[in-house]
């Protein structure tokens, strides 16, 4: 290395300072929600909780976990996420592999069919009518089937397979008499682990955060996913200050105080699973999407 001149040194220092500020700006809101969730709500609301939690208590969490709707929403969302992600991967990966094969006749035509859907779609109402006419509204299939394949994810997976699974290996397998199905399971999928992990994260997070589909397709209380219930709770809290629920023994003031705290607790409860899983899969990002996306 040629030694750095003064200009570069200044640049590096300024750069580090800027990026550290960016880091703080990104982290602080998340950190604040976390400390606010188990601090005394009065202190949070009056602006005394800034750097560390004060008046630590878990009343908010107790209230959140005592809420039956949250549990039912959690159960539903875990179910939708698990089954939904499995369907996504089962639909996307084999299709991505088939479309990565240059000897597949009609591949460009099929690819065009997929690509068009990225730029043009039927819109809200026509799609709603199809789902409704198929009798899927108010069933969990309405949340899983319409979004079973994301064209973007399909293309990224396909590109990854095209670039990372040696053609010689596939040829050798064919010569050895392997069927395409066997090749998919014994060669292609094991070699595609990084992209499968990334796709599972994308699809999984999509299901976990699903709000709009549930809003339009699900009205049955027992089928509502976490995000929908979360929204109701958060909205209720806005008005909690002015109303006391009949089954509660707490006073109005007590309720109002807790309302904000419940809000932060609900946010943590709903986001934690995603934020815990994400860093483990993040290491595949460079391998997965970056390679998949850039080399077409």
């Amino acid at each position: 290395m040629i030694k750095e001149n003064i200009q570069d040194k200044i640049f590096n220092i300024v750069n580090l300072v800027i990026l550290t500020i960016v880091l703080i700006i990104t982290l602080y809101p998340l950190y604040f929600v976390a400390i606010a969730s188990f601090s005394d709500p009065v202190m949070v609301n009056s602006g005394q909780v800034i750097l560390w939690p004060k008046g630590i208590n878990f009343k908010g969490y107790a209230r959140v976990f005592a809420n039956k709707e949250i549990w039912s929403g959690y159960r539903n969302t875990v179910f939708y996420t698990t089954l939904g992600t499995m369907i996504n991967l089962m639909f996307t990966m084999p299709a991505a592999y088939a479309l990565s094969r240059r000897d597949m006749i009609g591949r460009n035509f099929i690819m065009t069919l997929f690509t068009i859907t990225m730029f043009f779609n039927g819109g809200l109402i026509p799609t709603y009518l199809v789902v409704k006419n198929l009798g899927l509204t108010n069933t969990f299939w309405a949340l899983l089937l319409p979004s079973a394949v994301s064209t973007y994810n399909l293309i990224v997976s396909r590109t990854y397979m095209q670039n990372n699974i040696p053609v010689e290996l596939q040829e050798a397998a064919i010569i050895d008499g392997s069927s395409n199905t066997r090749m998919l399971f014994t060669i292609v999928l094991p070699l595609s682990k990084p992209i499968i992990a990334v796709m599972a994260l994308f699809y999984g997070v999509g299901h976990w955060n699903q709000y709009f589909s549930a809003l339009i397709y699900i009205t049955d209380k027992n089928l509502k996913p976490l995000q929908l219930i979360l929204r109701n709770i958060l909205l209720q809290n806005e008005y909690m200050a002015s109303s006391v629920s009949s089954d509660s023994v707490e006073t109005m003031a007590e309720q109002a105080k807790l309302a904000e705290s419940i809000k932060y607790c609900t946010i943590i409860v709903a986001s934690l699973p995603v934020l815990i899983v994400y860093p483990f899969i993040q290491k595949y990002f460079t391998k997965g999407i970056m390679l998949g996306a850039i080399r077409g």
């Binding site: 069919l113 859907t117 198929l134």
Partner: peptide
């Protein structure tokens, strides 16, 4: 391999286009 994905986009993307 392509069929499930293809059916999905036909039913939930192309049929709605007809509904436009």
């Amino acid at each position: 391999f392509v069929l499930p994905a293809l059916l999905t986009i036909i039913i939930f993307n192309y049929v709605p286009m007809y509904g436009i």
